[in-house]
Amino acid sequence: MFDHVKFGVSDYAASKAFFLKALEPLGVAVVAEGSPAYGIELSPKGKASLCLYQTDEKPAHLHLAFTAENRRQVEAFYRAALEAGGKDNGAPGLRPHYHANYYAAFVIGPDGHNIETVCHEPEA
């Protein structure tokens, strides 16, 4: 269901240290990291990820990413979400800065949360 969950933290260094230590017994390790504003992605062997980033926003908006089996599902999600009242935050398309087959769409939900659907598979 979830591909990744991303949320803001008020103390990036402390949160990073906490989650790395607390989740270590579950096999969680750093997958990617950028500046504190971009954050860190933690995952056990390429499965669903937990992403943290530095923010002053209170409360921080959530970023929820759902797994799609194919790119058609990403496109269908985007259309349905806009029809349901979501606001565009990134039309379906490749995001090669994440990886070559990262095909995603983003909408802002009713409470301001960034809702994403992503397919990691190459085009069929």
Rank of each mutant, 00 (worst) to 15 (best):
A81H: 00
E33M: 04
K87V: 15
D11Q: 06
G85S: 11
A13K: 01
H113C: 15
A14W: 03
L23R: 12
F66D: 02
Q73D: 06
E24P: 01
K58L: 13
G86F: 00
G112T: 11
A14L: 08
E75T: 08
P44E: 10
V74L: 06
G34V: 04
L23T: 02
P96H: 07
G109K: 02
A80K: 07
E116N: 11
R79C: 09
V30H: 04
P59A: 07
H63F: 09
I40F: 01
V118N: 08
A100K: 15
H97N: 15
D11T: 00
A105W: 11
A80E: 05
V28G: 06
H113Q: 15
E33N: 03
E83V: 10
P92N: 00
E57V: 14
Y103C: 14
N70W: 00
R95G: 02
K87G: 15
I115M: 12
D56G: 10
S15C: 12
G109W: 10
K21A: 09
V9N: 01
H97V: 15
P44A: 13
V28C: 14
H120P: 07
Y38L: 15
A76Y: 05
A32N: 12
Y78M: 03
Y12H: 02
A80W: 03
G112F: 12
D88W: 00
L20W: 00
K87R: 14
P122K: 08
P36E: 06
F7C: 11
N101P: 06
P25I: 02
D56E: 11
E24N: 04
L42V: 04
Y53R: 11
Y102I: 10
E33D: 03
A29C: 12
K45L: 13
R79I: 04
A100L: 14
P25M: 03
H4P: 07
L26P: 05
Y78L: 04
I108G: 10
K87M: 15
Y103S: 08
I115R: 10
D56Q: 07
K16H: 03
A105K: 08
C51D: 02
L42N: 01
K58Q: 15
E75S: 00
A22T: 14
A80P: 11
L52W: 01
V30P: 07
R79E: 12
L82H: 08
R72M: 13
T55W: 01
Y53E: 05
P96M: 12
A37S: 11
I108C: 12
A84Y: 02
C119Q: 03
A105T: 12
A14K: 13
Q73N: 01
P110M: 08
E69L: 12
Y102G: 00
